[in-house]
Design a protein around this nucleic acid. Structure first.
Lengths: 312, 312
DNA sequence: TTGTAGGCGTTATCAG
DNA sequence: CTGATAACGCCTACAA
C-alpha cells in the first residue's frame, strides 16, 4: 500500500504496516519511478547543462551539484553543449523531453534556448552573468568586480602592461572590466594586448602563444579561466618564459586543479558550494519567494603565478 | 495518434497523418517520457557511476560517453561514489530506482553493489579490470601489460630504482605488474619504494612527498594515474627536484590534461572513445551476442616527464 | 482504520 | 486503414 512506503498522507496501523512490509520483501517489490513520475508530474531529476564537463571548473561544479542534489532526493542528468549552438538546443530538447524538474545552465548562448526554456515552463537557473532581459533566475558572482580585483592585484606588483586572454563568446563582464581598467593606461595599445580563445587548455595555449610571442609582449596577463591558464602556463614554458618573473598571471575560477600547476595559480575563487546550493534551492524549493538574481562573494586566492610567493 | 509520431508499427494514411500533425502543433503537444517509459518499460536513460567526476580521466570519459549516448537517443545520469562504500550503494539504488536501462560503472568496490546489480537485472558494464568472478561484462585495457610497458620504458632510460605511487583500493593489476617487474631487481627494497594514495591530486601529492623526501629516493616512478601524477609533479617542485632529471615519471590514463603539465607527462594512453563506444554497445544493443570481456589496445604516449624530450 | 477504483499519458490490441 | 479501449504502476479520493 502506498501509505506505508510514503509515510502518509494518512496513518496506517502498525500491524497492517508490518504485513505490507513483509509482502514487499517477499515479492522483492521496487517502486516504479516512471509510474510515480507520471502520476505526480514530477521526476525528481534535474538537468545540468554545461559547455564541456572536461573543464575542471564545470566538473568540480558538477561534482558538488550532484552531491547536493542527491542528498535532496534528486538525480542529475548531464548535457554537454560543446560550444555549439545546435548541440545546445538539441541537448536541451532531450532534457525537456525527459521532463526534468529543473535545469541549471552554464553558458547558454542561443536565443532559441532561452525561448524553449521559457515556453516549456521548467524551472531554470543560470550561473552566467545575469541574463536579466529574459527574467531568468541566476546565481553568479560579480565578474566585473572580480576581474578588477585581479587586475589591481597585478598592478600592485607594478605591472603596467597587463594583457587579456579572453573567452570566445560573450563573457562581457570580464573583458569589459579589463578594458575599463587598462584603457586609460594603454590607450591605443589596448586592442593589441587582448587575445581570444575557447575555454579550454588548447584555447588558452594558442591565445597565449599569439599574445606572448612578440617583442612588445605584456609583462602580465589576466586569463579569463583556469582552464585557459593551464594552456597559458604551457605556452610560457614553450617560449622559455618564466612565470611569474617574465609574465605574471592571474586567472579566474579557483578550481582545485589550479593549486597543482607549476607555479600554482593565483586565481579568483568562485564559491562553488554556495553557488550549487543556491541553484538547488531555486530549482527545488517549493516556496517561490526567492530573489531573481543572487550574487555571491568571491575573493582572490593568492598563490604564486602573480609573483607573490617566489618559493615553489 | 501514436503511429504517426513513432512511424509505426503500422502504416497511416497521408491525410490522417497531416491531420494529426496539425493537431499536435495546435495543442503544442509534447510526448510524455514518463508515460512512455511506464508503458514500454524502457527509460532511454543510462547511469554512469564513477568515484569522482573531478578526476580528468573520468570527466573526459563522461564527456565522450554522454556524447555517444546522446547520439544513440539516451540521456545519462551521473553518480559519484566518492571512494566510499556506503555512498556507492546509495547512489546505485538511486539509479536503480529511476529504472535506468543500463549502468556503466568505474571503480565499484563493494560486494553489495555487485549483488544489487546482478539481482536487479539491469544491463551493466564495468570498465575496471575484469570482474570475472561475477560474470559482469567489461571493457578494459590490459592494465598489467600497460604497466609493464611503462616500467620498461623507464628502464630504457637506465633507471634501476623505479618506485610506485599506487592507488588506494584494488587496482591489483597495476601494482602487481610493478612488483613483478621490480621485485627481482629491488629485492628487499621493494616494499620501501611503494607509496599509496587516493586517485586524486592530493593523494598523489602526499604519496610522492613520502616517497621522495628521503635520501634513498628512487630515480624514477610509475604513477598509477594522471591525476596522481599532477600531485606528484607539484610535490617534486616543492622538493626542488627536477622532472625528469632528478625523478622521471610515467603515469597512466592519457588524459588531455596530461599534455599541459610542466613537463608534459609520458603516460599510458587509454583509448577513451573506443572504450565508451564498446560500453554503449554492450548496454544498448539488443542483440546479445557480445563477448563478455573486451580488452582494447593501449600505447605509450611519449612526452617529456620520462626524459625523452629534454626541450620544454 | 482499511479496501477499492479511477486516472495520469502512452502504446498496442481489437473490433469496425 | 481507423477509432475506441485496456493496461503499464502509482497515488489518492471515496466508500466501507
Amino acid at each position: 500500500m502506498s501509505y506505508v512506503v510514503n509515510r502518509g498522507p494518512r496513518p496506517v496501523a502498525e500491524a497492517t504496516r508490518e504485513r505490507v512490509l513483509a509482502a514487499m520483501e517477499e515479492l522483492n517489490y521496487r517502486p516504479n519511478a516512471s509510474a510515480r513520475a507520471l502520476k505526480l508530474a514530477r521526476t525528481y531529476v534535474l538537468g545540468l547543462m554545461m559547455t564541456d564537463i572536461t573543464n575542471p571548473y564545470y566538473s568540480e561544479f558538477a561534482r558538488i551539484f550532484q552531491d547536493l542534489a542527491y542528498e535532496a532526493g534528486y538525480a542529475v542528468m548531464i548535457a554537454n553543449t560543446a560550444h555549439d549552438g545546435a548541440k545546445e538546443i538539441a541537448e536541451l530538447k532531450s532534457l525537456l523531453a525527459r521532463e526534468v524538474d529543473g535545469i541549471a545552465a552554464y553558458g547558454v548562448r542561443e536565443e532559441e534556448t532561452l525561448e524553449l526554456l521559457a515556453s516549456s515552463g521548467v524551472r531554470t537557473v543560470s550561473m552566467d552573468w545575469h541574463l536579466t532581459r529574459d527574467g531568468m533566475p541566476s546565481v553568479v558572482i560579480d565578474d566585473y568586480r572580480a576581474t578588477r580585483l585581479a587586475i589591481e592585484h597585478l598592478q600592485g606588483h607594478h605591472h603596467q602592461r597587463i594583457g587579456l586572454i579572453g573567452g570566445t563568446g560573450d563573457r562581457t563582464a570580464r573583458q569589459q572590466a579589463w578594458r575599463d581598467a587598462m584603457g586609460p593606461i594603454l590607450g591605443r595599445d589596448l586592442e593589441g594586448l587582448a587575445e581570444w580563445g575557447e575555454f579550454s587548455r588548447d584555447g588558452g595555449y594558442h591565445a597565449t602563444m599569439r599574445l606572448l610571442d612578440r617583442p612588445d609582449r605584456p609583462s602580465a596577463m589576466f586569463v579569463s579561466s583556469d582552464v585557459q591558464a593551464f594552456g597559458a602556463l604551457r605556452a610560457a614554458q614553450v617560449l622559455r618564459l618564466n612565470v611569474p618573473r617574465d609574465v605574471a598571471i592571474v586567472s579566474f575560477d579557483g578550481t582545485v586543479a589550479s593549486a597543482y600547476t607549476s607555479p600554482p595559480l593565483t586565481t579568483i575563487q568562485v564559491p562553488y558550494e554556495q553557488v550549487a546550493r543556491q541553484c538547488l534551492r531555486k530549482l527545488t524549493d517549493p516556496r517561490d519567494s526567492f530573489e531573481m538574481h543572487t550574487t555571491l562573494d568571491h575573493y582572490l586566492e593568492v598563490r604564486s603565478s602573480c609573483g607573490c610567493n617566489p618559493e615553489p
